[in-house]
Simulated scan of single mutants.
Amino acid sequence: MKSSNIGLWIAGAAIAWCAWIVLDMAEPLSSQGTAYSTLPEVKNATMPVLVEFYADWCGPCRSVGPVVEDLSREVAGRAKVVRLDVDAESDLAASHGIRSIPTFIAFKDGREVARESGAISKAKMLQMLGL
């Protein structure tokens, strides 16, 4: 590489970096609370909804599953709790940006208001629902 080409390499790298920033910013993040959910249980809900994205083969998902089921019974009438299998509903999981499981997303009025990944406590789930 000639020393006279260094300026071209730097300019090319700067242009590529700027293009990457522009393209990355073009799609809003759903975790900012601006995106509406495509889940029917969320779109039509008149109360807060907590969605757990899980898989049957996931150890942490299996350990938190009974807690989620218990929470669902506990908040019946005040909130809705939905478990969504990412293997069966991969398109929905992808549309919500799920990259790790379990992931919990709380929705109010169809909009995402909170997101947590990993096995969380029932108290944290209640907090996400605003209860």
Results as ranks from 00 to 15, higher is better:
L92M: 06
T38K: 13
N5I: 07
T46F: 08
R115G: 05
S3P: 04
P40W: 09
M125D: 08
D87Q: 06
E52F: 04
N44E: 14
V113D: 00
S37F: 10
I21N: 03
W57V: 15
H96M: 15
T46H: 14
E69Q: 07
M125Q: 13
L39C: 14
A13H: 00
D85F: 08
C18Y: 04
E74K: 15
V75C: 07
A11Y: 00
I98F: 07
S3I: 11
S90L: 07
E74L: 00
L126Y: 05
F104S: 06
I101H: 08
L131E: 15
E41I: 04
S3A: 13
L8F: 02
E74D: 02
R73A: 12
I120F: 07
A93C: 06
P28C: 13
A94D: 08
V81S: 08
S4Q: 11
R62A: 09
L71A: 03
K122G: 13
L29G: 08
D91Y: 11
T103W: 09
P48W: 12
D24N: 15
L8E: 06
K122V: 11
M25Y: 08
L29A: 15
I120K: 15
R99K: 13
L39E: 12
L71S: 00
K108P: 00
R62G: 00
L126T: 07
W57P: 13
P28Y: 12
C61V: 02
G110E: 00
Q127H: 05
L71Y: 00
I6F: 10
A45G: 13
L71F: 00
G33F: 09
V49I: 10
G77M: 03
V82Y: 08
G97M: 05
M1K: 07
N44R: 12
L126F: 05
G77N: 04
E112F: 04
E89V: 04
A55G: 10
E27Y: 07
I101F: 06
A13L: 12
L8T: 02
D24F: 04
L126D: 07
G110L: 02
K80R: 14
L71Q: 01
P28K: 12
V42P: 12
G65Q: 09
V67N: 00
L92R: 03
L39P: 12
F104K: 05
P40C: 09
I98Q: 05
W17P: 01
S4V: 12
C61H: 01
V51Y: 06
W20C: 12
V42W: 13
L8K: 09
C61K: 01
H96I: 05
I105R: 03
S4T: 12
G130K: 03
V75P: 03
R62F: 03
V75E: 01
G77Q: 05
P48E: 08
K108H: 10
S30N: 05
L8G: 04
R83Q: 11
Q127T: 14
W20T: 11
V49K: 11
G130N: 03
H96A: 07
A14V: 13
V68W: 03
E112C: 08
C18L: 15
A79R: 13
V86K: 06
L23Q: 13
F107T: 04
L23P: 01
W9R: 04
E89W: 12
G130F: 09
A14I: 12
M25E: 10
L92T: 08
V75S: 06
Y36A: 09
L84T: 10
S100D: 02
S63K: 14
P48M: 09
V42E: 10
K2L: 03
G33A: 03
